[in-house]
Design a protein around this nucleic acid. Structure first.
Lengths: 219, 219
DNA sequence: CTACATGTTTACTTTCCAGTATGCAATTGA
DNA sequence: TCAATTGCATACTGGAAAGTAAACATGTAG
Protein backbone atom coordinates (compact mmCIF):
# COMPACT_ATOMS: atom_id res chain seq x y z
CA UNK A 1 0.00 0.00 0.00
CA UNK A 2 1.42 3.39 -0.98
CA UNK A 3 1.77 6.24 1.45
CA UNK A 4 -0.96 8.16 -0.35
CA UNK A 5 -3.36 5.25 -0.18
CA UNK A 6 -2.50 4.82 3.46
CA UNK A 7 -3.33 8.44 4.14
CA UNK A 8 -6.53 8.18 2.16
CA UNK A 9 -7.58 5.16 4.18
CA UNK A 10 -6.73 6.87 7.42
CA UNK A 11 -8.92 9.80 6.41
CA UNK A 12 -11.81 7.61 5.43
CA UNK A 13 -11.54 5.80 8.71
CA UNK A 14 -11.67 9.09 10.54
CA UNK A 15 -14.61 10.19 8.49
CA UNK A 16 -16.43 6.97 9.25
CA UNK A 17 -15.62 7.31 12.94
CA UNK A 18 -16.85 10.90 12.92
CA UNK A 19 -19.99 9.82 11.14
CA UNK A 20 -20.65 7.13 13.73
CA UNK A 21 -20.13 9.62 16.55
CA UNK A 22 -22.51 12.01 14.85
CA UNK A 23 -25.20 9.35 14.55
CA UNK A 24 -24.76 8.36 18.19
CA UNK A 25 -25.07 12.02 19.18
CA UNK A 26 -28.22 12.47 17.14
CA UNK A 27 -30.04 9.44 18.50
CA UNK A 28 -28.86 10.09 22.05
CA UNK A 29 -29.91 13.71 21.82
CA UNK A 30 -33.32 12.67 20.58
CA UNK A 31 -33.86 10.31 23.48
CA UNK A 32 -32.47 12.75 26.05
CA UNK A 33 -34.84 15.34 24.61
CA UNK A 34 -37.85 13.09 24.91
CA UNK A 35 -37.15 11.21 28.13
CA UNK A 36 -34.39 13.10 29.89
CA UNK A 37 -30.76 12.16 30.37
CA UNK A 38 -31.10 9.99 33.47
CA UNK A 39 -34.14 8.16 32.18
CA UNK A 40 -32.42 7.22 28.94
CA UNK A 41 -30.36 4.03 29.05
CA UNK A 42 -27.34 3.41 26.89
CA UNK A 43 -29.08 0.21 25.81
CA UNK A 44 -31.96 2.28 24.44
CA UNK A 45 -29.58 4.46 22.44
CA UNK A 46 -27.77 1.39 21.14
CA UNK A 47 -31.06 -0.20 20.17
CA UNK A 48 -32.08 2.79 18.04
CA UNK A 49 -28.81 2.41 16.14
CA UNK A 50 -29.17 -1.37 15.99
CA UNK A 51 -25.91 -1.93 17.82
CA UNK A 52 -25.04 -2.91 21.39
CA UNK A 53 -23.99 -0.91 24.40
CA UNK A 54 -20.24 -1.73 24.31
CA UNK A 55 -20.16 -0.31 20.80
CA UNK A 56 -21.01 3.10 22.24
CA UNK A 57 -18.07 2.84 24.60
CA UNK A 58 -15.69 2.54 21.65
CA UNK A 59 -16.74 6.06 20.65
CA UNK A 60 -17.51 7.74 23.97
CA UNK A 61 -15.68 7.08 27.23
CA UNK A 62 -18.88 7.23 29.26
CA UNK A 63 -22.38 8.62 29.38
CA UNK A 64 -21.53 12.15 30.45
CA UNK A 65 -18.92 12.43 27.71
CA UNK A 66 -21.78 11.89 25.30
CA UNK A 67 -23.94 14.46 27.03
CA UNK A 68 -21.04 16.90 26.95
CA UNK A 69 -20.65 16.49 23.20
CA UNK A 70 -24.36 17.15 22.74
CA UNK A 71 -24.39 20.20 24.99
CA UNK A 72 -21.44 21.79 23.15
CA UNK A 73 -23.05 21.51 19.75
CA UNK A 74 -25.62 24.31 19.90
CA UNK A 75 -23.42 26.99 21.37
CA UNK A 76 -20.43 26.17 19.14
CA UNK A 77 -22.63 26.29 16.05
CA UNK A 78 -24.11 29.61 17.16
CA UNK A 79 -20.72 31.15 17.84
CA UNK A 80 -19.46 30.02 14.44
CA UNK A 81 -22.55 31.40 12.73
CA UNK A 82 -22.40 34.88 14.26
CA UNK A 83 -18.65 35.40 13.91
CA UNK A 84 -18.60 36.50 10.24
CA UNK A 85 -21.70 38.65 10.76
CA UNK A 86 -20.19 40.54 13.68
CA UNK A 87 -16.95 41.01 11.74
CA UNK A 88 -18.69 42.57 8.76
CA UNK A 89 -18.00 46.24 9.46
CA UNK A 90 -19.49 47.28 6.13
CA UNK A 91 -22.96 46.60 7.54
CA UNK A 92 -24.83 48.77 10.05
CA UNK A 93 -25.45 47.56 13.59
CA UNK A 94 -29.14 47.14 12.83
CA UNK A 95 -28.31 45.10 9.76
CA UNK A 96 -25.89 42.90 11.65
CA UNK A 97 -28.32 42.41 14.52
CA UNK A 98 -31.04 41.32 12.10
CA UNK A 99 -28.74 38.87 10.37
CA UNK A 100 -27.58 37.57 13.75
CA UNK A 101 -31.13 36.86 14.88
CA UNK A 102 -31.88 35.05 11.63
CA UNK A 103 -28.65 33.03 11.78
CA UNK A 104 -29.07 32.02 15.41
CA UNK A 105 -32.72 31.06 14.96
CA UNK A 106 -31.70 28.90 12.01
CA UNK A 107 -29.24 27.10 14.27
CA UNK A 108 -31.96 26.83 16.89
CA UNK A 109 -34.36 25.19 14.47
CA UNK A 110 -31.69 22.83 13.11
CA UNK A 111 -30.22 21.85 16.47
CA UNK A 112 -33.28 22.34 18.63
CA UNK A 113 -33.01 19.07 20.51
CA UNK A 114 -29.34 19.64 21.29
CA UNK A 115 -30.09 23.08 22.66
CA UNK A 116 -33.03 21.99 24.77
CA UNK A 117 -31.02 19.08 26.17
CA UNK A 118 -28.30 21.51 27.18
CA UNK A 119 -30.76 23.82 28.89
CA UNK A 120 -32.34 20.98 30.83
CA UNK A 121 -29.42 18.67 31.54
CA UNK A 122 -26.52 21.01 32.20
CA UNK A 123 -26.43 19.97 35.84
CA UNK A 124 -25.52 16.40 34.82
CA UNK A 125 -22.19 17.53 33.38
CA UNK A 126 -18.87 17.44 35.23
CA UNK A 127 -17.95 20.77 36.73
CA UNK A 128 -15.11 21.15 34.20
CA UNK A 129 -17.33 20.41 31.21
CA UNK A 130 -20.09 22.67 32.48
CA UNK A 131 -17.71 25.55 33.03
CA UNK A 132 -16.26 25.27 29.55
CA UNK A 133 -19.69 25.43 27.96
CA UNK A 134 -20.81 28.25 30.21
CA UNK A 135 -17.76 30.19 29.08
CA UNK A 136 -18.78 29.76 25.45
CA UNK A 137 -22.23 30.94 26.39
CA UNK A 138 -20.84 34.00 28.16
CA UNK A 139 -18.73 34.74 25.13
CA UNK A 140 -21.86 34.70 22.99
CA UNK A 141 -23.65 37.11 25.32
CA UNK A 142 -20.57 39.30 25.47
CA UNK A 143 -20.27 39.51 21.68
CA UNK A 144 -23.94 40.36 21.41
CA UNK A 145 -23.62 43.04 24.08
CA UNK A 146 -20.68 44.52 22.18
CA UNK A 147 -22.77 44.74 19.03
CA UNK A 148 -25.49 46.50 21.00
CA UNK A 149 -22.97 49.00 22.34
CA UNK A 150 -21.68 49.67 18.85
CA UNK A 151 -25.21 50.33 17.66
CA UNK A 152 -25.76 52.64 20.58
CA UNK A 153 -22.62 54.62 19.78
CA UNK A 154 -23.78 54.87 16.17
CA UNK A 155 -27.14 56.22 17.42
CA UNK A 156 -28.92 53.30 15.81
CA UNK A 157 -30.11 51.89 19.17
CA UNK A 158 -31.38 53.25 22.46
CA UNK A 159 -30.33 50.90 25.20
CA UNK A 160 -30.22 51.36 28.95
CA UNK A 161 -28.32 48.24 29.96
CA UNK A 162 -26.53 46.45 27.12
CA UNK A 163 -25.62 43.37 29.17
CA UNK A 164 -29.14 42.83 30.44
CA UNK A 165 -30.58 43.50 26.99
CA UNK A 166 -28.18 41.06 25.33
CA UNK A 167 -29.13 38.47 27.92
CA UNK A 168 -32.81 39.04 27.18
CA UNK A 169 -32.32 38.75 23.43
CA UNK A 170 -30.39 35.52 23.93
CA UNK A 171 -33.24 34.34 26.11
CA UNK A 172 -35.86 35.24 23.52
CA UNK A 173 -34.08 33.07 20.97
CA UNK A 174 -33.45 30.21 23.38
CA UNK A 175 -37.09 30.38 24.41
CA UNK A 176 -38.03 29.55 20.83
CA UNK A 177 -36.09 26.29 21.12
CA UNK A 178 -38.02 25.46 24.28
CA UNK A 179 -41.52 25.75 22.82
CA UNK A 180 -41.28 25.40 19.03
CA UNK A 181 -42.76 22.25 17.49
CA UNK A 182 -42.62 21.74 13.76
CA UNK A 183 -46.13 21.51 12.39
CA UNK A 184 -47.33 24.14 14.86
CA UNK A 185 -49.42 27.17 13.99
CA UNK A 186 -46.47 29.41 13.13
CA UNK A 187 -43.99 28.80 10.32
CA UNK A 188 -40.29 29.24 10.89
CA UNK A 189 -40.31 32.39 8.81
CA UNK A 190 -43.13 33.86 10.84
CA UNK A 191 -41.20 33.16 14.00
CA UNK A 192 -37.99 34.60 12.61
CA UNK A 193 -39.62 37.79 11.39
CA UNK A 194 -41.66 38.26 14.54
CA UNK A 195 -38.65 37.66 16.78
CA UNK A 196 -36.59 40.04 14.71
CA UNK A 197 -39.25 42.73 15.07
CA UNK A 198 -39.36 42.25 18.83
CA UNK A 199 -35.60 42.33 19.10
CA UNK A 200 -35.58 45.61 17.18
CA UNK A 201 -38.19 47.04 19.53
CA UNK A 202 -36.18 46.01 22.56
CA UNK A 203 -33.06 47.81 21.33
CA UNK A 204 -35.11 50.84 20.30
CA UNK A 205 -34.15 50.57 16.65
CA UNK A 206 -35.56 53.08 14.21
CA UNK A 207 -38.83 51.86 12.69
CA UNK A 208 -37.77 52.38 9.09
CA UNK A 209 -34.66 50.24 9.45
CA UNK A 210 -36.73 47.57 11.11
CA UNK A 211 -39.49 47.01 8.63
CA UNK A 212 -37.19 46.66 5.66
CA UNK A 213 -35.15 44.03 7.47
CA UNK A 214 -38.10 42.12 8.81
CA UNK A 215 -39.55 42.00 5.34
CA UNK A 216 -36.22 40.75 4.01
CA UNK A 217 -36.24 37.93 6.55
CA UNK A 218 -39.61 36.80 5.18
CA UNK A 219 -37.99 36.57 1.76
CA UNK B 1 -64.16 16.05 74.02
CA UNK B 2 -66.72 18.50 72.67
CA UNK B 3 -67.61 18.70 69.03
CA UNK B 4 -65.99 22.15 68.76
CA UNK B 5 -62.73 20.94 70.30
CA UNK B 6 -62.83 17.97 67.99
CA UNK B 7 -63.15 20.26 65.01
CA UNK B 8 -60.34 22.51 66.26
CA UNK B 9 -58.06 19.56 66.67
CA UNK B 10 -58.92 18.28 63.23
CA UNK B 11 -58.01 21.69 61.80
CA UNK B 12 -54.72 21.84 63.62
CA UNK B 13 -53.91 18.38 62.37
CA UNK B 14 -54.60 19.46 58.85
CA UNK B 15 -52.50 22.54 59.31
CA UNK B 16 -49.62 20.48 60.64
CA UNK B 17 -49.97 18.01 57.79
CA UNK B 18 -50.00 20.87 55.29
CA UNK B 19 -46.95 22.35 56.92
CA UNK B 20 -45.10 19.05 56.70
CA UNK B 21 -46.00 18.72 53.02
CA UNK B 22 -44.79 22.26 52.42
CA UNK B 23 -41.44 21.58 54.08
CA UNK B 24 -41.03 18.38 52.06
CA UNK B 25 -41.81 20.32 48.88
CA UNK B 26 -39.32 23.03 49.72
CA UNK B 27 -36.43 20.70 50.46
CA UNK B 28 -37.25 18.42 47.54
CA UNK B 29 -37.51 21.38 45.20
CA UNK B 30 -34.15 22.65 46.38
CA UNK B 31 -32.47 19.32 45.70
CA UNK B 32 -34.24 18.83 42.36
CA UNK B 33 -33.10 22.32 41.42
CA UNK B 34 -29.49 21.62 42.29
CA UNK B 35 -29.08 18.00 41.22
CA UNK B 36 -32.02 17.19 39.01
CA UNK B 37 -35.05 15.03 39.74
CA UNK B 38 -33.61 11.65 38.81
CA UNK B 39 -30.32 12.27 40.59
CA UNK B 40 -32.06 13.18 43.83
CA UNK B 41 -32.89 10.26 46.10
CA UNK B 42 -35.77 10.22 48.51
CA UNK B 43 -33.25 9.34 51.20
CA UNK B 44 -31.43 12.61 50.49
CA UNK B 45 -34.66 14.58 50.84
CA UNK B 46 -35.50 12.74 54.05
CA UNK B 47 -32.03 13.40 55.41
CA UNK B 48 -32.38 17.16 54.90
CA UNK B 49 -35.56 17.05 56.98
CA UNK B 50 -34.00 14.70 59.52
CA UNK B 51 -36.63 12.03 58.92
CA UNK B 52 -36.63 8.74 57.03
CA UNK B 53 -37.81 7.77 53.58
CA UNK B 54 -41.03 5.96 54.59
CA UNK B 55 -42.08 9.16 56.34
CA UNK B 56 -42.21 10.88 52.96
CA UNK B 57 -44.54 8.18 51.69
CA UNK B 58 -47.07 9.08 54.37
CA UNK B 59 -47.41 12.50 52.70
CA UNK B 60 -46.78 11.75 49.05
CA UNK B 61 -47.81 8.54 47.30
CA UNK B 62 -44.61 8.42 45.29
CA UNK B 63 -41.79 10.47 43.86
CA UNK B 64 -43.65 11.86 40.84
CA UNK B 65 -46.54 12.97 43.04
CA UNK B 66 -44.02 15.14 44.83
CA UNK B 67 -42.63 16.48 41.57
CA UNK B 68 -46.17 17.21 40.41
CA UNK B 69 -46.89 19.25 43.51
CA UNK B 70 -43.71 21.25 42.96
CA UNK B 71 -44.41 21.85 39.28
CA UNK B 72 -47.94 23.14 39.97
CA UNK B 73 -46.79 25.74 42.46
CA UNK B 74 -45.30 28.38 40.19
CA UNK B 75 -48.05 28.49 37.62
CA UNK B 76 -50.85 28.42 40.20
CA UNK B 77 -49.25 31.26 42.13
CA UNK B 78 -48.83 33.27 38.94
CA UNK B 79 -52.41 32.73 37.86
CA UNK B 80 -53.67 33.79 41.27
CA UNK B 81 -51.47 36.88 41.24
CA UNK B 82 -52.56 38.18 37.84
CA UNK B 83 -56.27 37.51 38.22
CA UNK B 84 -57.17 40.67 40.23
CA UNK B 85 -54.92 42.81 38.03
CA UNK B 86 -56.58 41.65 34.82
CA UNK B 87 -60.02 42.18 36.36
CA UNK B 88 -59.30 45.78 37.30
CA UNK B 89 -61.05 47.57 34.45
CA UNK B 90 -60.45 50.96 36.04
CA UNK B 91 -56.80 50.73 35.02
CA UNK B 92 -55.43 51.18 31.49
CA UNK B 93 -53.99 48.21 29.58
CA UNK B 94 -50.50 49.65 29.95
CA UNK B 95 -50.99 50.03 33.67
CA UNK B 96 -52.30 46.49 34.04
CA UNK B 97 -49.48 45.08 31.93
CA UNK B 98 -46.89 46.83 34.08
CA UNK B 99 -48.45 45.56 37.26
CA UNK B 100 -48.68 42.08 35.77
CA UNK B 101 -44.97 42.03 34.97
CA UNK B 102 -44.10 43.17 38.45
CA UNK B 103 -46.42 40.66 40.08
CA UNK B 104 -45.21 37.73 38.01
CA UNK B 105 -41.55 38.59 38.52
CA UNK B 106 -42.18 38.73 42.25
CA UNK B 107 -43.58 35.19 42.07
CA UNK B 108 -40.61 34.20 39.95
CA UNK B 109 -38.15 35.47 42.53
CA UNK B 110 -40.03 33.88 45.42
CA UNK B 111 -40.63 30.54 43.76
CA UNK B 112 -37.65 30.45 41.45
CA UNK B 113 -36.57 26.91 42.25
CA UNK B 114 -40.09 25.56 41.77
CA UNK B 115 -40.34 27.23 38.39
CA UNK B 116 -36.96 26.09 37.16
CA UNK B 117 -37.69 22.54 38.29
CA UNK B 118 -40.90 22.61 36.29
CA UNK B 119 -39.16 23.87 33.18
CA UNK B 120 -36.47 21.21 33.39
CA UNK B 121 -38.31 18.20 34.76
CA UNK B 122 -41.73 18.37 33.12
CA UNK B 123 -40.98 15.23 31.11
CA UNK B 124 -40.78 13.21 34.32
CA UNK B 125 -44.46 13.81 35.06
CA UNK B 126 -47.28 11.44 34.18
CA UNK B 127 -49.05 12.38 31.00
CA UNK B 128 -52.15 13.34 32.99
CA UNK B 129 -50.25 15.54 35.42
CA UNK B 130 -48.24 17.17 32.64
CA UNK B 131 -51.35 17.97 30.65
CA UNK B 132 -53.07 19.58 33.61
CA UNK B 133 -50.14 21.87 34.24
CA UNK B 134 -49.73 22.69 30.57
CA UNK B 135 -53.37 23.72 30.52
CA UNK B 136 -52.76 26.17 33.37
CA UNK B 137 -49.80 27.48 31.46
CA UNK B 138 -51.89 27.93 28.30
CA UNK B 139 -54.51 29.72 30.34
CA UNK B 140 -51.86 32.14 31.55
CA UNK B 141 -50.68 32.83 28.01
CA UNK B 142 -54.26 33.20 26.85
CA UNK B 143 -55.09 35.73 29.57
CA UNK B 144 -51.98 37.70 28.74
CA UNK B 145 -52.83 37.65 25.03
CA UNK B 146 -56.31 38.92 25.84
CA UNK B 147 -54.85 41.85 27.76
CA UNK B 148 -52.63 42.64 24.79
CA UNK B 149 -55.63 42.61 22.48
CA UNK B 150 -57.52 44.94 24.80
CA UNK B 151 -54.59 47.34 24.78
CA UNK B 152 -54.46 47.16 21.02
CA UNK B 153 -58.16 48.00 20.72
CA UNK B 154 -57.63 50.93 23.08
CA UNK B 155 -54.77 52.11 20.81
CA UNK B 156 -52.36 51.78 23.70
CA UNK B 157 -50.35 49.03 22.00
CA UNK B 158 -49.18 48.21 18.50
CA UNK B 159 -49.01 44.46 18.15
CA UNK B 160 -48.79 42.25 15.08
CA UNK B 161 -49.40 38.86 16.65
CA UNK B 162 -50.85 38.94 20.16
CA UNK B 163 -50.42 35.20 20.79
CA UNK B 164 -46.78 35.16 19.75
CA UNK B 165 -46.11 38.36 21.67
CA UNK B 166 -47.75 37.00 24.82
CA UNK B 167 -45.65 33.87 24.48
CA UNK B 168 -42.51 35.96 24.18
CA UNK B 169 -43.36 38.08 27.21
CA UNK B 170 -44.03 34.91 29.21
CA UNK B 171 -40.69 33.62 27.99
CA UNK B 172 -38.89 36.82 29.00
CA UNK B 173 -40.18 36.44 32.52
CA UNK B 174 -39.49 32.70 32.73
CA UNK B 175 -35.99 33.35 31.39
CA UNK B 176 -35.32 35.46 34.46
CA UNK B 177 -36.01 32.42 36.65
CA UNK B 178 -33.52 30.42 34.61
CA UNK B 179 -30.55 32.74 35.04
CA UNK B 180 -31.15 34.92 38.12
CA UNK B 181 -28.93 34.31 41.13
CA UNK B 182 -29.37 36.37 44.24
CA UNK B 183 -26.20 38.28 44.94
CA UNK B 184 -25.60 38.80 41.22
CA UNK B 185 -24.78 42.10 39.59
CA UNK B 186 -28.39 43.20 39.16
CA UNK B 187 -30.87 43.83 41.95
CA UNK B 188 -34.41 42.54 41.73
CA UNK B 189 -35.72 46.06 41.20
CA UNK B 190 -33.29 46.64 38.36
CA UNK B 191 -34.44 43.43 36.74
CA UNK B 192 -38.10 44.26 37.23
CA UNK B 193 -37.82 47.77 35.82
CA UNK B 194 -35.64 46.70 32.91
CA UNK B 195 -37.96 43.82 32.05
CA UNK B 196 -40.95 46.10 32.27
CA UNK B 197 -39.31 48.56 29.90
CA UNK B 198 -38.55 45.79 27.41
CA UNK B 199 -42.06 44.43 27.65
CA UNK B 200 -43.43 47.89 26.92
CA UNK B 201 -41.13 48.18 23.89
CA UNK B 202 -42.28 44.84 22.59
CA UNK B 203 -45.95 45.81 22.72
CA UNK B 204 -45.18 49.22 21.20
CA UNK B 205 -46.47 51.13 24.20
CA UNK B 206 -46.31 54.89 24.17
CA UNK B 207 -43.04 56.16 25.65
CA UNK B 208 -44.67 58.52 28.12
CA UNK B 209 -46.82 55.83 29.70
CA UNK B 210 -43.79 53.60 29.95
CA UNK B 211 -41.33 55.76 31.80
CA UNK B 212 -43.76 56.74 34.51
CA UNK B 213 -44.56 53.10 35.19
CA UNK B 214 -41.00 51.88 35.07
CA UNK B 215 -40.05 54.60 37.53
CA UNK B 216 -42.93 53.53 39.77
CA UNK B 217 -41.63 49.96 39.76
CA UNK B 218 -38.26 51.20 41.02
CA UNK B 219 -40.12 52.75 43.91
C1' DC C 1 -55.13 -1.19 82.77
C1' DT C 2 -56.15 -2.48 78.18
C1' DA C 3 -57.04 -1.85 73.48
C1' DC C 4 -56.63 0.88 69.70
C1' DA C 5 -55.00 4.62 66.65
C1' DT C 6 -51.36 7.59 64.96
C1' DG C 7 -46.92 8.62 63.36
C1' DT C 8 -42.52 7.13 62.46
C1' DT C 9 -38.59 3.84 61.89
C1' DT C 10 -35.77 -0.38 60.80
C1' DA C 11 -34.79 -3.55 57.63
C1' DC C 12 -35.68 -5.66 53.43
C1' DT C 13 -36.71 -6.67 48.41
C1' DT C 14 -36.57 -5.99 43.77
C1' DT C 15 -35.42 -3.90 39.77
C1' DC C 16 -32.55 -1.52 36.90
C1' DC C 17 -28.49 0.12 34.59
C1' DA C 18 -23.61 1.97 33.93
C1' DG C 19 -19.65 0.05 33.07
C1' DT C 20 -16.46 -4.22 31.93
C1' DA C 21 -14.19 -8.79 30.94
C1' DT C 22 -14.08 -11.81 27.58
C1' DG C 23 -14.81 -13.88 23.18
C1' DC C 24 -15.57 -14.18 18.28
C1' DA C 25 -15.75 -12.99 13.40
C1' DA C 26 -14.08 -10.57 9.60
C1' DT C 27 -10.68 -8.06 7.35
C1' DT C 28 -5.85 -7.09 6.44
C1' DG C 29 -1.04 -7.98 5.44
C1' DA C 30 2.74 -11.09 4.57
C1' DT D 1 -2.65 -19.98 4.25
C1' DC D 2 -1.64 -18.09 8.49
C1' DA D 3 -1.01 -14.50 12.01
C1' DA D 4 -2.62 -10.28 13.81
C1' DT D 5 -5.44 -6.47 14.30
C1' DT D 6 -9.90 -4.29 14.23
C1' DG D 7 -14.70 -3.99 15.37
C1' DC D 8 -18.11 -5.53 17.45
C1' DA D 9 -21.24 -8.73 20.56
C1' DT D 10 -22.38 -11.85 24.63
C1' DA D 11 -22.67 -12.15 29.20
C1' DC D 12 -21.65 -10.56 33.54
C1' DT D 13 -20.89 -7.51 37.97
C1' DG D 14 -21.66 -4.20 41.34
C1' DG D 15 -24.06 -0.80 43.28
C1' DA D 16 -27.76 2.21 43.90
C1' DA D 17 -32.34 3.58 44.83
C1' DA D 18 -37.69 3.25 44.68
C1' DG D 19 -40.90 1.27 47.07
C1' DT D 20 -42.77 -1.89 51.09
C1' DA D 21 -43.62 -4.90 55.17
C1' DA D 22 -43.49 -5.11 59.61
C1' DA D 23 -42.28 -3.39 64.03
C1' DC D 24 -42.27 0.11 67.49
C1' DA D 25 -43.26 4.05 70.32
C1' DT D 26 -46.35 7.39 71.96
C1' DG D 27 -50.47 9.02 73.07
C1' DT D 28 -55.80 8.52 73.57
C1' DA D 29 -60.23 6.48 74.97
C1' DG D 30 -62.98 3.59 77.57
Amino acid sequence: MTAAANLAQANLKHEVADFKRRRIREEASHLFFEQGYESTTLDAIAQRLDVTKPFLYTHYANKTELLYDICRTGILQSLAAIEPILMDRTDSAVGRLGRLVEAVLTIIFDFQEFIVVYEREEKNLDEVQAREIREHRSLFDHKLATLLEQGQLAKEFEIVDAVLTANTIGGMMTWVALWYRSGGKRTRYQIVSHTMAMVFSVVGANRQDQSALVAAARR
